[in-house]
């Protein structure tokens, strides 16, 4: 969270940005805003600071407020600093029926933080989220874009241990293991 660097995508990402913009009709480059914000969040410490959003606005030649409006609408964008691993726990419907609240409580106790908070070492944040479409394998949580399904306390322990052993910030762009159904 103290990581500070110049807000500018690297060359490779800038090329990707141009390719993304080309997916949409000419003059409609604002359409690339959501994908670009995902890229920015992944590249700039896992959250969207005002300067980061201003930078994205400049890339798309749109007004900064247009970016703030959008970034604050969608729940996947973090507008405050978060831990290196954001644990997004589903709390809705089938996950709730199958014990999501116990999982959330277990995580909170284990990490000594509440949902919405970040551990002191900046490693973990817990975020409760609405249905992630994993109802048949409930309860579940997501780290990066990896789904962890059919959770039990033991499984949560194992996942946390594994996550702790890797210091790299998790992003939605990380490769995942797809479990067999």
């Amino acid at each position: 969270m103290t990581e500070t660097k110049e807000i500018k995508f690297n060359e490779e990402t800038l090329e990707l940005v141009q390719r993304i913009i080309k997916r949409y009709p000419e003059g409609k480059q604002k359409s690339a805003l959501l994908p670009l914000l995902h890229l920015a969040q992944a590249e700039f410490d896992g959250w969207l600071s005002a300067p980061t959003m201003d930078y994205v606005a400049s890339l798309l030649n749109i007004l900064p407020i247009e970016v703030y409006e959008v970034a604050s609408f969608y729940s996947m964008y973090n507008l405050k600093p978060v831990g290196k691993c954001v644990i997004e726990v589903c709390r809705t419907s089938s996950c709730w029926l199958m014990g999501a609240e116990d999982i959330i409580k277990y995580l909170e106790n284990k990490l000594s933080i509440k949902a919405g908070e970040t551990t002191e070492d900046g490693m973990f944040s817990i975020k409760t989220v609405e249905c992630l479409g994993s109802c048949g394998t409930a309860p579940m949580m997501m780290c990066g874009s990896q789904f962890h399904e059919k959770l039990s306390f033991e499984k949560v322990d194992n996942i946390l241990d594994k996550l702790k052993s890797d210091d790299k910030r998790k992003t939605y762009f990380d490769a995942v293991v797809v479990e067999d159904y």
Partner: peptide, 23 residues
Amino acid sequence: HTGAGAYICGEETALLESLEGKR
């Protein structure tokens, strides 16, 4: 085109707004 966390974007016109880079 990836969304970013909003159930409402399943409604077709909200989805189109989101495709256009809006709320």
